[in-house]
Design a protein around this nucleic acid. Sequence first.
RNA 1: GCGAGAGUGGCGAAAUUGGCAGACGCGCCAGACUUAGGAUCUGGUGUCUUCGGACGUGGGGGUUCAAGUCCCCCCUCUCGCACCA
Length: 984
Amino acid sequence: MPLYNPATVEPKWQRFWEENATFQTPRLPSDSAAGSGEKLYVLDMFPYPSGEGLHVGHPEGYTATDIFCRHWRMRGKTVLHPMGFDSFGLPAEEYAIKNNEQPRGFTEKNIATFVRQLKSLGFSYDWSRQLATTDVEYFRWTQWIFLVLFDTWFDEQTQKGRPIAELPIPDDVQKQGEAVVEAYRDERRLAFQSHAPVNWCPDLGTVLANEEVIDGKSERGGYPVQRIPLRQWMLKITAYADRLEKDLETVDWPESVKALQRNWIGKSIGAEVDFFLPGDGGPDAGTKAFENWKQARKKSGFPRKAGDDTLRVYTTRPDTLFGATYMVLAPEHPLVDRLTTTEHRGAVEDYQRKAGGKSDLERTELAKEKTGVYTGACAINPLNGQRIPIWIADYVLISYGSGAIMAVPAHDERDCEFALKYDLPIVPVVQPPAGYEPSEAEKALSHDKAGATALPYFGGEGAAINSGPYDGTPTKEFKPRVAQDLEAAGLGRAATNYKLRDWLFSRQRFWGEPFPILHELDAKGEPTGRVRAVPVDQLPVDLPHLDDFKPHGRPEPPLGKSPEEWLYVTLDGKRYRRETNTMPQWAGSCWYYLRFLDPKNDQAFVDPEIEKAWMPVDLYIGGAEHAVLHLLYARFWHKVLFDRGYLSTPEPFRRLINQGMILGEMEFTLYALGSAKLAEPGTMPIDVKRVEKNVETGQFVDSISGARAYPIMLGGDDVEKRGDAWVWKAMTDIRVDARSYKMSKSRGNVINPDTIIRDYGADSLRLYEMFMGPLEATKPWDMNGVSGVRKFLDRSWRLIIDAEADGGNADAEAMTLHPSVQDVEPTADQLRILHQTIGKVTADTETLSFNTAIARMMEFVNYFTPEPVRPKAVLEPFVLLLSPYAPHLAEELWAALGHTKTLAYEPWPEFRADLAAESAVEIPVQINGKTKTVLSLPTDATKAQIESAARADERVLAALAGKEPTKVIVVEKGATKLVSFVVK
RNA sequence: GCGAGAGUGGCGAAAUUGGCAGACGCGCCAGACUUAGGAUCUGGUGUCUUCGGACGUGGGGGUUCAAGUCCCCCCUCUCGCACCA
């Protein structure tokens, strides 16, 4: 029997869409010939074009956005739906090195493969807007945006990025001459150079951002990472921490992603406090000096920078200040050297060496056991004048706060562990509330000293004790009060801190955007330390051709080996050497959604009129793996461009959805007798029911239901041979574990979309991925499910096409309609089914509940298949409903029904509630909460009619047994009706 | 430990505001057609049952005429973060 044949139908329509530029979007929404002109910008996270090609995870999100776009196009919106490629990055470079090729060639080949695969799925992208971050004309503007960052400083007063030319220069800086002024400016740019220690990864030959280092290893490849000092470009994302945190409230994103970003930004509210450093003038001299210092502070107030005689700490618990019994500095803290007494110098330097040599991984692994050494120095608590010792320990991080803490062992778990280990005093300053039960963490820490009764550590809130004038103050009041008092005395102030660090933006690799930055050289060709931007009219700075761009394990970038004519530049009579670092892969993806608006513009990164008309992105769909990095970086750049007046919206992505991961097919393992594993991966189907049945009979068990199945491997002491069959000796416990795993080459469970398209067609792949379950859920692949949706498509086809005649031919003119398809008025029942389907599919498509929309269309086909007459007036709207989901099949059926134009812009079928309404309604009757019967009454029955009909029902009469109900409830909520009797 | 999310048939999953739990699909069972095929069509399929019905949404309580849905306690799983003072 000839069947619907996607292998000919699908390419035909893909060609049609391409040749007719069906999905080309006008420059502005208002330019749209048809429709309301209302804009809709729907964006997919563009892929990295890897050598492996598309995997089945890609089409999941892409199909979802495509359905959404096709749906809204039919409803009159002007839809922008572009696609591009995030094509810079390590894998292409690694591949090129290994195969002695150029990364550009490999990248272009991969992009071509991706384009072919994406087109074979029938996505309605406007391909004329295709871009790749590696296009010179694209990264020209990436470089331009970098220069905007370079030209911007963050004004704390207005919380806005402003041009560097508007940076106020303090008089004392001005006085020191142009070089100092320039350094002052350079420090404040959003793109600035730093010499701080960075994450150097020798195996990758590059430094990595903090975000790219997981447990002390590189996120990509899992190579070890060391901390070394190196000149690097940084982006001052920390300046925007507060706005990046606050504006999360304004976007419609998954709570989990917002939580992730909040956690990453890590805002904490507390106070900065200065502890006095008395030096080594002896206890009395210290006390005297402390009093003088306090006097001076009272006059001067809290200084912006801590002086030589103070140790500044950050704390979220200023209310525990009276319980500070020692101080801890990070081993790298600049004060350590000066504070350490001769007596302790050896031990301290020893400890510093060990801590410095430790990778972050080691520091994390050894986290359980705290270590530290005493410096011999002490500090004076500004509130109670107490002298407390200063230690160094690597549980204090140099990169957070001021790199120093006051330790309050009684109320901080880490400090308590440390204090217990080194026998430091523990002074409780917070009284737990009455009836308080200690937590597990609190119980875990205890004194092993004799006579100790109370637990040493309490992490909660309560009332102040041992806190002098503050005794009795509840924690909540204490915090703001002490911050205020400290500020009045010039000893501290309220402060906010962030976990977020500045973004390390340079990489020592070849395959990335060159920085548009020049380093000035002196007469001898040595760098003067001054930098300048490449003039905008000289952009782009293209990559030079290099035969050898291998990293060499040293932190000098490969671009350092560039030809002299690239590397050295003369400008305004001065000699410069180009910056040889390149930008990280994130750079290109930070703004691609803007370039899609105006991809061919060679005057600006985007025309302001166009930007204003299309932004923000209305729907952005992609994987959860970008929840922090890409989405935070992009938001940061967007805000800078917004501040500088280039953009009209403060946030780029109004609504975000993460599609769930698609796992490999379910794998089954059979266990017996509690623990013995009997099954190993294989091929034989196994049926659970049969397993259970056979447990009773003691028979050999052969199958489990499911997609991928295993033979039973018999062996060990649990089985024996009886006659020809193996049986278990004792069958007391049989258990089947079904699990699915991430698709991976090593597990051999990767599904290739090309194969699915070949065997089932693109529409089947699209439909299956949408039918699997909710878009955001993680779900396992099931090959039987694919053939299930294919069957639905075949049934839809046969609903309209006469499969007995010459259907299946890709030529629409040759197709014969099914004899049941007639140009007649539909019956009321048929219209009702149609309009119920329209209503459900429309609502579900709007909310991206594609699985239930498809289910409803299946019901439609199930209803109409046995109908002897199928009116065209019902089938045509159905084809339109189906078209966003299975566009190839729908176009083909549309043509078969006699239409000559694409259905892509046909008006979406109109839902009519009156036609969808049922004439009769099923009304359950409950007695004491149990459903006893179901009445079928006209929809317009009144409450009184419903009640009397219920009372008259035989089964109700029987259940009531002559008793009068104590309560009667007749529910009427929309279409839902119900009668509930209560009988005593 | 902290944060987010989730537990419903043999499996993937449905179930506006509390209102007939299990739509739709897979798998399975039976049948029809048949130049036996992984095609198509029809019927059945939560569990138990003494065939009246009883039970059933991770477990235990509660609110309600009515709970997968609301409240309290607990368990399990997934993902993320993790010495951030």
